[in-house]
Design a binder for these strands. Structure first.
Lengths: 338, 338
DNA sequence: CCAGCTGAGTACAACGTTGTAAACACAGCA
DNA sequence: TGCTGTGTTTACAACGTTGTACTCAGCTGG
């Protein structure tokens, strides 16, 4: 029954309300015989604790929020699924928010949503900047997902974007390509992730002695297929078009592949393509996409653990910076058959 | 401040706690001067109502759950985003659950999750069957998303799957194709959606005087790219392979396109392909995919409205059956250039 | 035989909110 | 002056849970 209360169980078991509470939470010492009686009553009545009452009393609801810029982006959907799984494993529930990538919305969420019901927040920020975040002192426990600038007062979980981007670019260079374009430079203010990935790209070029041509780095307004397509179209109008392209995510790559196809380019022969994120569809695209595969499950577990620790520790505990793994998955879009 | 209570506001405004409560909720009559004083105090202290206490008192939390078989499936991610938006517009929050398509999990959720915190549930069932659902009497308010067998005691929101499937098949027939395969027949027990779509397919064939060849309807175990690919591979081993294929969702179609490509078939010339769902990636696949586009926003709004009505009305109100729209979107995968 | 201890269970108050019923101020009317 | 109404505000008791402080029985050791 939905409306079963501690009191009902207590009556049926012939004990006090508090004893039932103790049994339910495994606290305090309860005699075996009593515990047994109570457990039977709980089973008989199908008792479920009332989260609101519990929260009201203890300040803990067991609910954490996950805020992503765009749930429909496959990467975030996949990440969300992992977070839900990781949270369930630890006995808590996840409430998903979609910030639409707006700075205001991100700040609102970082400050604890509209409601103190939430124990803590996992935020994957796109636009949130340091000063805004620094000002939020004393709010809800918060863990950031993804790269952020260094001295931000919050826990981070991230992958080494710079190293990953370098590995992706190295891979393209190792195929003998020298006109290696990059898609994903933001047209507006840079956010940390793209700075890191750009850095990795440039480092790889530099190490290989290939000069950087700014024409090969068209600006994009968002990480979408449409923007990837537009950027690719721009690249194909160049006098000396690229023979390879590293896209900052798989959606951009998907758009790029699409345009390459429209222009009659054969991938990978005429143009090698690497993406980032390893979303499921990239395994099935035509051609299948070489990409950086972040360890999404690892990210989710590290993040949930970090958040739970933060919730227990309070705002004063030192901030941690946790790194999850990644790997380069080579598929058709860079596999040149002799 | 997170810990600001009605009491604090009341003290600052020099009124009673209840008056503040009345102002906050816009209930009862409050004199303009008083209201103004209270509003200022609320602004000064940045008061936010405590949802748990409210829920404890009123039995309403403003939180509804959305349970989908698989959040990573793009269709459900897109639907979830629409539901979140629709719910926010109506002032409530959405908690997303991933059932993994398991009947047990679906039933657990239909019975109200682990917690009476949730006001109601939107469930997109895959395996849940009538008897199980009928037995849940008196539980959480529930609205089902998607086709279900007829006499189930719950509100439904759906599209006319049969008509849509017929339209998709008609479209393929109108291109002159006669070997029209269908991918999506379940290998196990049928669920309502596939029954409807199969019915539409058969009706279209029948109306066109094309006999149904069971070989052209390979079984699939799930609506995934991998299963779509496997089914397509099977179809291509036939002596008389198909010249068109209608897939029960876009993921199946994506797998099918992939295999067609591997086998050197040109789409749509050698094989025309239609999908179902109109997920975003289908606009960017190579070739772009003709598909049935359900009105996802319409579904979400109808569903949230129906759930809120149900929550208000209680379990006794008659069950409704709401139909959202769809349209056939023609793209490259069926657009034969002369 | 009693003081002191231990282990098991309980009564009560609080968490922040809202519904109910009652109190209050003040006007108009007899 | 007192009475009735009207429009505003308030005190109080819940909602279901848990922390604190308590009781109580049974036992140990002096």
């Amino acid at each position: 029954m939905a409306g079963t209360r501690l009191k009902d169980v207590a009556e049926r078991a012939g004990v006090s309300i508090k004893t039932v509470s103790n049994v339910v939470r495994g606290e305090a010492r309860v005699a075996d015989r009593t515990r047994e009686r109570v457990l039977r009553a709980i089973a008989d009545l199908d008792y479920q604790p009332n989260a609101s009452a519990r929260h009201l009393r203890t300040g803990r609801s067991g609910i954490i929020a996950l805020a992503v810029p765009e749930l429909v982006a496959p990467y975030f959907a996949e990440l969300a699924a992992q977070v839900i799984a990781a949270a369930k494993k630890r006995g808590c529930t996840v409430l998903i928010e979609d910030t639409g990538g707006s700075a205001d919305e991100e700040l609102r969420i970082a400050c604890g949503l509209s409601d103190p019901l939430i124990d803590g927040v996992l935020l994957s920020p796109l636009r949130l900047d340091e000063p805004a975040l620094a000002a939020r002192e004393g709010r809800v426990p918060l863990v950031l997902l993804g790269e952020q600038s260094y001295e931000i007062p919050a826990d981070h979980v991230l992958i080494d974007n710079s190293a990953a981007a370098r590995e992706a670019t190295d891979h393209l260079l190792s195929l003998g390509r020298r006109r290696v374009a990059v898609i994903g430079q933001p047209s507006g203010p840079a956010h940390a992730t793209t700075v890191q990935r750009m850095h990795g790209y440039l480092t790889a070029l530099h190490a290989a002695g290939v000069p950087h041509d700014p024409q090969l780095a068209p600006a994009t307004r968002a990480f979408t297929r449409a923007e990837g397509a537009a950027a690719m179209r721009a690249l194909l109008t160049l006098d000396d078009p690229p023979d390879a392209v590293f896209c900052f995510n798989d959606l951009l790559a998907s758009g790029a592949l699409r345009v390459a196809h429209e222009h009659g380019l054969r991938v990978p022969r005429d143009l090698a393509v690497v993406g980032f994120d390893d979303v499921e569809e990239s395994r099935f695209s035509v051609p299948s996409l070489t990409t950086i595969a972040p360890d999404k499950r690892g990210i989710a577990e590290l993040a949930v653990d970090a958040l739970l620790r933060r919730i227990d520790a309070g705002a004063m505990a030192p901030h941690s910076r946790l790194t999850a793994g990644y790997e380069l998955v080579v598929r058709e879009s860079t596999r040149v058959t002799a």
